[in-house]
Computed example of a mutant assay.
Amino acid sequence: MPKNYCPRCGSLALLSHDGNQYGCEQCDFELFRNVAAAVGVVLVHQQHILLVKRSKAPQAGMWDLPGGFVNRGETAEQALRRECQEELAIQLDSELAFLGAWPNLYAYKELEYPTLDIFYTATLTNRPQLTADNTEVYDVTWMSSDACRTLDMAFNSGALAIAAYLRR
């Protein structure tokens, strides 16, 4: 079990009963471990979905949808457009349609971060030229919608997003 040191007084008295709200028994400090927001997109061109293969942990080598974490001060849509630019060097000018949001756990190093993954869809009229940022993505492919039905995805939330898109 990890040690929970209080960020205010440094004592080993930071306790939680629910894994979300922590309180220090020494100095009465309160800390909340809230859910982080992340975004993803089901990018579609002629019944094919754009998938990226992750190049780093967690889930390195597995298929995922383009996306990432929302930064402070960003809307979900702004974060998604930024992530597509950073990961794939594409300007996502298409209209984004909200698809759904699913909880996820993002295991990174020794911690598991609870996230709420917000997904959108966008239909592209032209297939863009893709340049993957190899620090984030080491492979990119357009996969037929049918092939995506049984694909083993990096995160359950991405699989749920694809399933929701295919049910439309």
Results as ranks from 00 to 15, higher is better:
Q47M: 11
Q47G: 09
F155L: 03
L105P: 00
N4H: 15
R149L: 05
V137G: 00
L43Q: 00
M153V: 04
Y5M: 06
C6I: 01
L12C: 11
N156V: 11
G40H: 02
P7G: 04
S16R: 06
A132R: 12
A38V: 08
A161N: 07
E95L: 15
K3G: 11
L151F: 04
G10Y: 07
E25G: 11
A60R: 14
I118K: 02
D117P: 01
F32D: 10
G40C: 11
N34T: 15
K53Q: 14
C24P: 02
V52T: 15
G158M: 06
P128N: 03
R72M: 15
A101K: 11
V44A: 05
F69S: 10
P58H: 04
H48G: 07
Q129D: 10
D18V: 05
Q85H: 13
N20I: 14
F69Y: 05
T75Y: 03
Y113E: 12
L105R: 14
L99P: 08
Q85K: 11
G10H: 10
G40F: 00
L51F: 07
P2M: 15
Y106V: 04
Q59D: 06
L160V: 04
T141S: 07
E87G: 08
I118S: 02
P2A: 15
T135F: 05
Q26A: 09
A57S: 13
Q91I: 14
N104P: 03
T121A: 08
H17S: 14
S55K: 08
E77S: 03
I90E: 10
R81I: 05
G100R: 03
G23Q: 11
R8W: 07
R33P: 03
E110Y: 09
L50M: 08
L12T: 12
Y22A: 02
M153A: 03
C84D: 05
F155S: 00
C84F: 09
P114C: 06
L151S: 04
